[in-house]
Design a protein around this nucleic acid. Structure first.
Lengths: 188, 188
DNA sequence: AGAGATTGAATATTTAAAAATTCAGTCTCT
DNA sequence: AGAGACTGAATTTTTAAATATTCAATCTCT
């Protein structure tokens, strides 16, 4: 057998769950199936992740968010989101199914949490010492609000089959987060 | 028949559920309790509403949203939201409890749906024939997005005990819906 | 619109089956 | 030899199915 690097198991497990998720709902996928497909036994799974949802979190963090973090930091947010949407589009078959996961550990809540943490990281890192506009507009609120906004648009995109181009998504996102409902009603 | 006082029963039922909700979770309140408190019998409830959740919807629509609809229409969105937040604050005891309702018919999803419908009404009413922007930025998307944003901030306010003033809420809302994460990261 | 009686749909409870998880021990690589 | 990663049997925890119970919804009549 192989005997390669250490994170190769992470990748194998991620690959397995992504392939399995294309066929049936993530709720119904067991750890056993994931490890069987990955060619390891069940307990090995637990050396790497607590449960299915932590694996999902790992995928979102590693494949989608960590690559865009430096871009956000460097003020290239628009390019960051274009890269994010592109990466999702490359895995369209997986994400259009995965987004259906509902309940306590819904795909939406996992994604929202991951986005929030990344934004909070970047914000607090940049804002050491500085204040916030209104007393109630804390970094936490900003991170949660924009995690909410972004995940809303991305999840809507996924749920409707991702039939809109990456550029259109980026334009729509840019438009939505910059216009109040007051602006829009006046523009009409 | 009479054709008269339907709405007085509506108000009685609304008053009952609001009082009951101050003591215990809405999930646990039975129709029987609501009607007992209102001084009518159970079947009467079903002459007015399909279930508890439609009653809640009625409260949100009648007490919170219908009053601000004309203000939105007339381009006074900021004043509309101040009125909305004020009305909620007057019923603080109810809303800080009601917002806990989770699950299929969560308070959040009912509120979101109501807000979406109101915004969609105003938008489509004003925009007959017009529109361009991006192909994907439809009135539905705008209504859903802003229902999402508004309900996020309001629900957060309710869940944290509504310890922030109406004016601060209005300022925070105005700030959030007008600034992209890119703007915020650059401003820091 | 309101009261009583009947029907039907959720809800809770129990039990059985199938996973998930733990843990002591094994293997591999340095 | 020692650290890190993997195995497989035994235990615990979840999940699922079937039954019993409660409550919601409808119908008829006033």
């Amino acid at each position: 057998m192989t005997g390669q690097g250490r994170s190769s198991v992470d990748l194998l497990l991620a690959k397995s769950v992504k392939e399995l998720a294309e066929d049936r709902p993530i709720e119904k996928i067991t750890i056993k199936e994931i490890t069987d497909k990955a060619g390891v036994i069940r307990p090995t799974f637990y050396n790497h992740f607590q449960d299915k949802y932590e694996l999902l979190e790992w995928i979102i963090m590693t494949e989608l968010l960590e690559p865009i973090k430096p871009m956000l930091w460097n003020g290239m947010a628009t390019q960051a989101f274009i890269l994010l949407f592109s990466t999702i589009e490359k895995d369209k078959r997986f994400y259009t199914k995965a987004c259906r996961l509902e309940g306590q550990n819904s795909f939406e809540s996992i994604a929202k949490e991951c986005i929030k943490n990344v934004l909070l990281d970047v914000l607090t890192d940049k804002a050491t010492g500085k204040r916030g506009m209104h007393p109630w507009v804390s970094p936490e609120l900003i991170a949660e609000y924009h995690a909410q906004s972004l995940s809303f648009l991305v999840l809507r995109w996924m749920r409707t089959g991702m039939n809109v181009s990456v550029q259109e998504m980026a334009d729509a996102y840019d438009y939505m987060i910059r216009h109040s409902i007051e602006d829009i009603l006046k523009d009409i």
